[in-house]
Nucleic acid binder design. Structure first.
Lengths: 148, 148
DNA sequence: CCTATTTAGTTTAGTTTATAAACAAAATCA
DNA sequence: TGATTTTGTTTATAAACTAAACTAAATAGG
């Protein structure tokens, strides 16, 4: 009985390990989203962090992405060159810069979102109502657990 | 009813998205394992891929890690400098090289495994038997789904 | 009202992790 | 045997970061 429990922990942990491995690989290579050409993982990740609503300050973006301000400057320059984001001066504080998505950037955002939705739909089509509910609950606990 | 289903997909997909985000962050910074000093994600990942059993050929390692042979050469040089792996000539084919963990490397492997086990134990302590079972089943389906 | 400090963002130099292409040496095929 | 394939290394390059030095604007306090 005790032995069985230990084995279960080991196999469960290995499954989770494999999941982490596969998820890491997933977001590791460039991919084309919407009207935008191929985007690297960090490019689409940045577009995702900017979001569809109003613009974001560079420093806020650095917080969201958990990188330095210098890293944000670099990637935003690249995204600006590709016409995916816009930089506008902040009218209420001329030190800061507001970053927002262009139409092309928004189309990449939506295409990326759609990929996620499609993936989730495919997955949940293989589960019943109760399984989906428990799965989501577990993901949530896992997330809370990871935030420490 | 239909609306409800759409919303469920969206929120579920977002939860999964957050999980991917957090897992990506988790394995992004160096960490100390066992007797080895701080190891970068790709260093511990490589140690994990070599494993505790008999040695592995460089090319097999490249396959497991899904990187080029050149990348493997580079990381193995670094791990060798840190005395975590050993290179021995293959007696049956003198083109190839067998890579295996040193005692220090094995201690890093075990410490890393222990981190995963501990994490999984913590997580599953918050779930009941039925939830764990369904969760593992879902992870498995997710993995299968990701391998395409 | 200045000066001193803080805040926002940029620039630069260097690191890590990877690729791709050219290569050398050994094994295998025909 | 000679041509080809396989195994691994080397080298030059790129992406994605960090850390530190910097500029310019805002703010706090004497």
């Amino acid at each position: 009985m005790e032995q069985k429990k230990v084995d279960r922990t080991k196999s469960g942990s290995q499954k989770l390990g494999q999941l982490i491995l596969l998820l890491g690989r997933l977001e590791k290579h460039p991919h084309t989203f919407g009207e935008a050409g191929p985007l690297t993982p960090s490019e689409i990740h940045t577009i995702d962090a900017i979001g569809m609503e109003r613009g974001v300050l560079m420093s806020e973006l650095a917080n969201r992405l958990r990188v330095t301000k210098g890293a944000v400057t670099q990637i935003i320059v690249r995204l600006e060159d590709k016409n995916l984001v816009e930089r506008t001066p902040n009218p209420t504080d001329s030190r800061s810069v507001i970053v927002s998505l262009t139409e092309k950037g928004k189309s990449a955002f939506r295409a990326h979102e759609e990929v996620h939705l499609h993936f989730y739909r495919e997955l949940s089509s293989q589960l019943d109502e109760q399984e989906i509910e428990i799965f989501e609950k577990c993901i949530e606990k896992l997330c809370i657990h990871l935030q420490k």
